[in-house]
């Protein structure tokens, strides 16, 4: 996160924001369930039509290092700003 983006922290979010964050997490979990449910339907249809033998037949092969790089980039995108918080919360 750049200094320009960091600057407003503490101005936009009040102290009681934890309740709101929890609510966001609940909504995200609901949306994730929607995606997983739909994905299961699609996978079932793919198996029934012979497109794949089974979703669980998918395994990682020896080129998994590429997977790790993508995964690590995914984690960095989501959580990367946390490492920039430092010794004090920016509340100016």
């Amino acid at each position: 996160m750049s200094e320009r983006e960091r600057e407003p922290l503490g101005k936009f979010a009040p102290d009681n924001i934890n309740d709101h964050i929890l609510h966001v997490i609940f909504e995200l979990a609901a949306e994730l369930w929607v995606v997983k449910r739909r994905l299961a339907e699609v996978e079932g249809a793919a198996v029934a039509n012979g497109v794949i033998a089974s979703p669980d037949s998918i395994i990682r092969d020896d080129s998994f290092a590429f997977d790790n790089a993508e995964r690590d980039a995914f984690v960095e995108r989501i959580f990367g700003s946390l490492k920039d918080i430092g010794a004090k919360l920016d509340t100016q």
Partner: peptide, 30 residues
């Protein structure tokens, strides 16, 4: 299952992030 493997793959990635990124930041902050 593939989902179990994916779940743990994510945990592995998040742990690596904690060690590679959060640890140095924490040491610097201290």
């Amino acid at each position: 299952s593939y989902d179990d493997e994916s779940y743990l793959d994510f945990i592995e990635g998040l742990r690596m992030f904690a060690l590679r990124s959060m640890n140095p930041s924490s040491a610097r902050a201290l």
